[in-house]
Design a binder for these strands. Structure first.
Lengths: 217, 217
DNA sequence: CTGCATTTTGACCAAGTAGTCAAGTTTTTG
DNA sequence: CAAAAACTTGACTACTTGGTCAAAATGCAG
């Protein structure tokens, strides 16, 4: 295969072999599903191994500790999860940029609810595995975007609004549809499955938030 | 003690004895703390027993199964958690009623974050213990309040807004400060502990949401 | 005080689960 | 093709944990 990694001489294996690449991906996919459903403590290696279609010792050959699988899948998820925030463009139209951001976050909640739940569960339990990430990379990124929003407010392109609380509100609301899916379904019933439901949700959420911060006059 | 329950004759004990009353309360308090921190599967009876200051078999004397403790503390919490929603007054001023509601929810998140987290964790994991409650009592209550909000919209007292999504947004945002506390702290740092932080949060949240739905003229 | 009901607990058991190991099988490489 | 490396797994161990039990301690009514 074109992607196979060739090792030279008899060197200790450094790179990733073909089989390793395949199996690690399979394991991480299975793990995301299991961990996001049952949480770290509630998931067993056997469950993940079964979903991945391999024996437990084999799985442990790739990730020697349960923690390793968890942390890896969590970190992989995190990066993807934050990308939309990073994409907010300081040069764009504020209301339009935020509309894009909210839309994207809602879409991710719809398409990858497991990722959202995995993350929510980790934070809910005190974020033992990613507190460095939160205080480091995440804080930096949020500070940066908050500065942009604050500038927008100063330029009268937005009503006076605390940028941090605005970001929290967007996160909370968009992720709610993934994290609290069962509750949303219990209350809305079959509506949730009707075509157009997600567009309608986006419309509602965007309308409240953007009207809430659009400059008046 | 005035609250002691007297048993007549040699009847099988039906009522609650003084010691039972005390100990059940102690156990439930300990259980709320433990379950809300570690989730159902992540909590052990030993942990709860230790926090309650009694032996494990003694705890099991009062609640024969781990599930029993969990369900009891969850149900106790739920009722309290919903009360503010119930208090929304159809005859009141819409914006004022919603301001009151948001304020109350934020206050509860501040004062009883464990309750919020316990609930969040349960929903996040599919609400196995309370799905009847969600589809029954909760749905009814929300439907009722949604009707009120819809009437307010019809009467032009609010901008056109989907009542269900508005309620979800309020829930998501207010509970975020309890459920995602670690993240909020990681990003805002010591601000969170400054006096007035909660008032400032309330001010920000209320301003965005209420401006978002206040009728424009 | 006396006897019965209630409460309390140390010791124990059975099930479940993370992780090990040594022996086999397959893949890669020269 | 042959040897080495990489991969796979059944069987096992050590430990945690939910729950039991019988016996001891305490509370309480008459």
């Amino acid at each position: 295969m074109a992607t196979a990694v060739k090792r030279k001489n008899g060197e200790k294996a450094e790179g990733t072999t073909r089989i390793q690449g395949i199996n690690r991906r399979i394991i991480l996919e299975a793990a995301l599903e299991v961990f996001s459903t049952y949480g770290f403590r509630g998931s067993t290696i056997d469950q993940i191994a079964e979903k991945a279609g391999m024996s437990k010792p084999n799985l442990l050959y790739y990730f020697p500790r349960k923690q390793n699988i968890y942390v890896t899948v969590l970190e992989d998820t995190l990066e993807e999860w934050l990308r939309p925030l990073d994409d907010i463009d300081p040069a764009g139209d504020p209301v339009e940029e935020l509309r894009k951001y909210i839309t994207l976050k809602l879409k991710m909640s719809e398409e990858k609810p497991e990722a959202s739940r995995l993350f929510a569960n980790e934070i809910l339990h005190g974020a033992p595995a990613i507190s460095d990430f939160l205080k480091g990379h995440l804080k930096e990124l949020v500070d940066e975007k908050a500065t942009i929003i604050r500038r927008w407010v100063d330029e009268k392109k937005l009503s006076p609004v605390d940028p941090y609380h605005l970001i929290f509100m967007i996160w909370a609301t968009t992720q709610h549809y993934a994290d609290f899916d069962v509750q949303v379904r219990a209350i809305l019933g079959s509506q949730v499955n009707r075509p157009g439901f997600h567009e309608q949700t986006a419309q509602a959420v965007i309308s409240i938030i953007l009207n809430g911060i659009r400059p008046r006059g």
